[in-house]
Amino acid sequence: MSDQPTGQAANQAADDDVLRAPLLLEYPFRRTTGPVIGAYFTALREGHLVGILDDSGRVICPPVEYDPQSGKSLTKIVPVSSEGEVVHWTWNSMIREGQPFDHPFAWALIKLDGADTPIYHAVDASHEQMSAGMRVRARFALERRGEVSDLECFEPAN
C-alpha cells in the first residue's frame, strides 16, 4: 500500500474507477401532531387556515406550540384569512424532487390577513407577476387528507 498515491493525487488518479451505488435514505416513523399542529392540519382539511395567539396577543400562522419569545405554551387557535400579501419572495428555477411543482415557481413569505407573522410557502405564478406587496390567495388540494400538502400553494388573487 505504501506506493499508493494519497490525498488529492489519489482522487484525481482514480476518480473514474470509483464504484458508485444508489443509497435510499428513509425515515420510517410516524409522528403524532398534537393539539396545535393537529388543529392546523384539521383546518387545512376543511379548506381554511388558522393561527395561534402568542403571549403578546400577536397571531402566529402557521401555529406553534410555544411562544417564540417567552417559551410559554400556546393554546388559543384563531382563524386567519386564506388571502394575504407577499412580503418577500425568491424565484426557484432549479426544481428538485419533492417540491410543490415541476415548473419554476416562487418561494415567498406571505402575511395572511389577520396574521402577524408570515407563512413560508410556494407561489404558483410567473416571474413577471411576482412582486413584494402582491396579493395572493391559498389554493387547496381537491382531495384533502389533513396534512401540510392540503395547502398546495398560493396563487395571484387578482
Binding site: W89, T90, N92, H121, V148
Partner: peptide, 18 residues
C-alpha cells in the same frame, strides 16, 4: 421543521435567498 417546511423540500439556497 418537519411539519410545515421540510415537506415542501426548500433548499438551503432557497432559504438563504429569502
Amino acid at each position: 421543521d418537519p411539519y410545515y417546511e421540510a415537506p415542501l423540500w426548500p433548499t438551503s439556497i432557497d432559504f438563504a435567498a429569502l
